[in-house]
Design a binder for these strands. Structure first.
Lengths: 200, 200, 200, 200
DNA sequence: CAGTAACCGAGACGGTACGTCGAGTCTTACA
DNA sequence: TGTAAGACTCGACGTACCGTCTCGGTTACTG
């Protein structure tokens, strides 16, 4: 059943050492200063071992994301109040990404994503989509509670949230809680006074 | 005899050739594959000439942005209907950034921004802030027309717009008009059925 | 009291395949471009199998020589006329070593010999010494026939012959029969006009 | 008249440092263990600088020979007695090549010569041919003194001498003076008792 | 005739060196 | 004195081999 090719089996220790070294290099130097020579040395691994499994820098970084070595995850709470939960997620996520190492890591990830379409796809499929799905799920449960409009475009809402986070990361801003709360309020209440759903 | 100033006059032609070569290199190869050797050769310029004016790659790219060589600008129309104008801007901007060369350029810019804090600051100060200011101005005029709530957080609204654009660029999505319209609708009407800010 | 260790016996097929692959690699690429990876692949053999039997490249090449796979042998004829026989040997040997494959092989052998003292010893003990012994034997029989002086230094003569062959191989010259005949004539008649030995 | 291209001029210091480092590497490790990385490091030079001027290992070694950095030269004396002078040259040359460093160097040279036809040609044209010409000149002067037969093939004689030296170097033999003297005697008196050329 | 020891192929491993390319600096000749 | 040309050091790239080390499997002697 199992293929059972001949030859020595892949070293799991090497794989982990490579990923770990990649993460720390990435955090402290960024994506385009990433040196496979240094990674190999730090991981105590031959350069060929890296190239055997990852065709290029991008693939290596992509694998780092997948394995969760690269980015922290913030859970979406479920307190009963959707706005509070979303606000909480937004503040927590912002705080986590403002930390120096995490910030370096996420910026490296953005650079990798901008440079390499495969990485972008990989990242979107396996990382952000998870957070997005969680948020959407929470919003849907909010909708069942009557806290979210039936016809509100949840995908658009989630995209706006992620987009705001992204923008703050890129511009190195560390937004305070009020600003983030204002964003959530905007998304739930809207800015249009004439609007159908009603002015104050 | 007449002028008698020693030395050769600085070549404006060289400066422009450098910027042009940088732009095209950036569009077709991306930021981290940018090669100053290639730029110098393509511009018919000595490498030292580049380094005389720009201390490093990042500064060169930053200058490229400033000079408008790097990114197209989309004007915010002023038709009388704020939602329509914002929607128009969003669709136009998305379309412009979906074009292959512009997309490559903007992604290169994002990578540069992610890698280099100076570039990020430069970009934020001189490029996005312009677009942001324009959007804010339009929204303020809309507020005077009663189309925008008095207490709506305009900055947050603009950030959400820019964030959505950013996310689409990074994920290589080409959103259709309906999706973008839904985003604008969300931002103006909100998703919260109970209406935190005011009852229905 | 048979020694007869248990375990699988050495695969003769593998041994031959290795030697053959080595020979052809050596002929077409030379000694320092010799690759054990390539040899193993060409021979359909695991690299470890080569290393099990030969501690290093040199030993493998040395074995190749021994087994006669590596160099052709030219017999010394015995026609009754020593000069003619030696000349014949010299011409035949030169011709054989001028052929492209044999030439590549012998030059690879020379390189191996120059690089590795063990290979040199091996080669001298098992290969050239055979040719030398044959030549010496022929000269001794010539001495018995009165065609060679009783006190002529046969070893020196043979060394001069081999040295000339070697030099021609290294310099990629393809000497014609006249030049080689002149060498033999010189060795038998000498260049000294006074005839030193006569007046001894 | 001089071409006077623009651009920085080639650094003579770098050239010499490279050649010197090459020589010492060659002497202590041999030709096929020669590492350009090591040479560059030892010479305090970028690897690219080596490759800018020498397309491959062989060319570098060839240049090393030319510049006299690589091999000692033994002059042919002129005492009036040709045999004595030739014998002296042979003994001196043998002694010099038996010394460890020189021996390593000459063997590396032989390996380079065996591996690379260009090096061989280079070497033959610029190095051995000098020694050969000197020997031939001495023999011709001996011929004018009546010490060498008018019709003796001087080229063949010189080749035999060089060939014998070569063989000794390759086999790592350190021949004593008597053996070398016997060789010279053979070359001048011949081994053929009947005396083909007749003139005893 | 079952164990078991030494073999076999395959191929991954940590390394070293390769030859190329790019960054950023420096040195020419010329304008 | 600014500029094009181009050599310089440094360091990373991705590839190729080295010699070693598992792997799963195959003989063929031994108990």
């Amino acid at each position: 059943m199992t293929t059972a090719r001949p030859g020595r089996v892949r070293s799991e220790a090497a794989r982990l050492a490579i990923l770990e070294a990649t993460t720390s290099e990435l955090a402290e130097r960024g994506y385009d200063k990433l040196s496979l020579d240094r990674i190999a040395a730090a991981a105590g691994v031959g350069k060929a071992t890296i190239y055997r499994w990852y065709p290029n820098k991008g693939a290596l970084v992509a694998e780092g994301m997948l394995s969760g070595h690269l980015l922290p995850r913030v859970a979406v709470p479920s307190s009963g109040d959707v706005r509070r939960d979303v606000t909480h997620w937004l503040i927590e996520t912002s705080a986590s990404l403002t930390e120096p190492t995490t910030g370096g890591l996420i910026r490296a990830t953005i650079a990798a994503t901008a440079e390499d379409a495969d990485v972008a796809r990989h990242y979107d499929d396996h990382v952000t989509s998870v957070a997005r799905a969680e948020l959407v799920a929470r919003l849907e449960s909010g909708r069942r509670d009557g806290q979210v409009d039936a016809d509100a475009p949840l995908d658009a809402l989630v995209e706006a949230l992620v987009g705001v986070v992204l923008l703050n990361v890129l511009t190195r801003r560390d937004p305070d809680a009020t600003a983030l709360t204002a964003t959530v309020t905007l998304l739930f209440d809207g800015a249009g006074s004439a609007g159908g759903r009603g002015g104050r």
